[in-house]
């Protein structure tokens, strides 16, 4: 076996990388949404009610992507 073949060999299920990729975006997204909400409430506490609702909608859109990403990976690798 030459060096190129050894470097290119992959063992196990490559589809697990799919979950990793599907987790990166939502993790960053939720981090930004929550962080910016905390920042905004610290600056203007009177807007807390509105910011809670807006934070919810930010989290909802971010998690929608995560659900579809995870479901896609598992469902299209099913036998």
């Amino acid at each position: 076996m030459d060096a190129t073949t050894v470097l290119a060999a992959i063992n196990g299920n490559i589809a697990t990388v799919g979950y990793g990729l599907a987790a990166i975006g939502p993790a960053i997204g939720v981090g930004i949404v929550v962080g910016k909400t905390i920042e905004s409430v610290a600056r203007q506490p009177e807007l807390q009610g509105r910011l809670t609702v807006l934070m919810y909608i930010g989290i909802a859109f971010t998690e929608a992507l995560a659900f579809i990403g995870i479901a896609t990976y598992f469902i299209f690798t099913a036998k």
Partner: peptide, 21 residues
């Protein structure tokens, strides 16, 4: 999931939240 997002957006755009001033 997409349907629930639509519900979220519709409910939130039609709602009013006061400012505590």
């Amino acid at each position: 999931v997409v349907g629930s997002l639509v519900v979220d957006v519709v409910v939130i755009t039609r709602s009013r939240v006061g400012i505590d001033v």
